[in-house]
């Protein structure tokens, strides 16, 4: 039930955004977001609402670090 999915914002009309999830488009209400978002941002959506903006920089940094640990045989 708490299923959520990451989607990319393709348009915003007032407080409703259209988001793209691997080619499928859905509407998401932006009323619950703590920060401003713009077209191109990724948001995590649940039950028709965007509930958080995805931190792209942090995501990339963490994934790169994990890959680095593996590369250096630490994992």
């Amino acid at each position: 039930m708490c299923i959520g999915f990451p989607g990319k914002i393709v348009s915003i009309d007032d407080n409703i955004a259209v988001i793209d999830i691997s080619g499928t488009q859905r509407e998401a209400c932006l009323d619950l977001l703590p920060d401003e978002v713009t077209i191109g941002d990724y948001v995590l959506c649940h039950a028709g609402y965007a509930i958080q903006k995805i931190d792209e920089e942090l995501a990339k940094e963490k994934l790169d670090f994990l890959k680095e640990l593996i590369e250096h045989e630490i994992y």
């Binding site: 619950l32 977001l33 509930i51």
Partner: peptide, 16 residues
């Protein structure tokens, strides 16, 4: 799950 979860959570959602 740091790409989506922050230490402080989503204060606006909690307030609502």
């Amino acid at each position: 799950y740091a790409r989506a979860v922050r230490e402080e959570g989503n204060p606006r959602a909690r307030e609502i």
